[in-house]
Design a protein around this nucleic acid. Sequence first.
DNA 1: TATGCCATGTAAGGGGTTACATGATTGA
DNA 2: TCAATCATGTAACCCCTTACATGGCATA
Lengths: 183, 183
Amino acid sequence: MSLKHAILVLLETEAGSGYDLLKGFKQRLGFFWNASHQQIYQQLKKMHEEQLIELTMEKQNGKPDRKVYHLTNSGREELATWIADPVKPNKVNDALLVKLYAGHMTEPDVLLKELQRHKEIHQKMLATFLDLEAQLNALPKDKQTPYRLPYLTLRRGIIGEEGWLQWAEEVEEELSKMKKAAG
Amino acid sequence: MSLKHAILVLLETEAGSGYDLLKGFKQRLGFFWNASHQQIYQQLKKMHEEQLIELTMEKQNGKPDRKVYHLTNSGREELATWIADPVKPNKVNDALLVKLYAGHMTEPDVLLKELQRHKEIHQKMLATFLDLEAQLNALPKDKQTPYRLPYLTLRRGIIGEEGWLQWAEEVEEELSKMKKAAG
DNA sequence: TATGCCATGTAAGGGGTTACATGATTGA
DNA sequence: TCAATCATGTAACCCCTTACATGGCATA
């Protein structure tokens, strides 16, 4: 139920359209919150009805009008209240682990290939995160200060991906042993 | 869409009722798949209609009849096919990180308290996992063999929780600094 | 000529949460 | 006597995914 609050966070920094928010999710919250454009437009409609956000129309030629949303006082309050309220830790539902658990039903190679696919994705994400970290660290110290909190979320991404890849090595080793034993 | 397959995995080992499955999720897949009893009963109804599972009634005195479900051939096939098919990596949606990102709207103490709540939960989970690992390692080598794959899922839990706690230390350090600077 | 970006939406269906509903047995 | 465990379900609601729908502009 926090898509609402993630949107409020993005709009708190800067007013924007549904399309801006879509990009905002990708660029700013991408490693810990994701939303599709369909979700965003529907949510904005609801939040407008709840008067958490206001909109101004911007006319454009050739393109549809931009609906630029900004926080109301009520929206700002909602966000501040939510931050102070406890949230439940995430429910973990990981299909890859279900497959591994039931791996006796298939060949080690099937599992290894699936693992490989996931590993590539995780490697790319780690590379992106490390790149961002390097960019931040290259800034002069005083310019880094405003990014202290976002930087911590980036650290979560880095530590998480490193852990995942470390685990993947253990899995690969074990599956290779099983393959040899079977072959 | 994999609750269906998680249920098939549990029933593949042993036939069981909705209630048995609820316990099965907690005890066997708990660190990587969770489902409520309402979800399970509704899903079983659907899977029965799709003929992935069959049921036999067991009469009991004083209690409602147990509906014991077991896989059909079609269910077993569905499971094997699913294991070989690529699954998308999980979408990450982590409200705690959204809060941290927008932490400038509140006091460091508010964030520290929320972090503390989550930390306790993660510490308990890690303790449980390490306990299970110790139990497995205490078994004679030949008894360990059938648990090789479930053991790997347990390792995912351990590495994940260790990473989370390591990150929490970084966050605590940074928030403490901010608190001092503000006070 | 085709891909991608800009920019917005609706509709159907699937999945999950919360609340409601019942009722016996067992152990602290 | 109270809480937990056994054992099953329905209903309303919310959230998310997939598919459908439109159309101009810019770049390769």
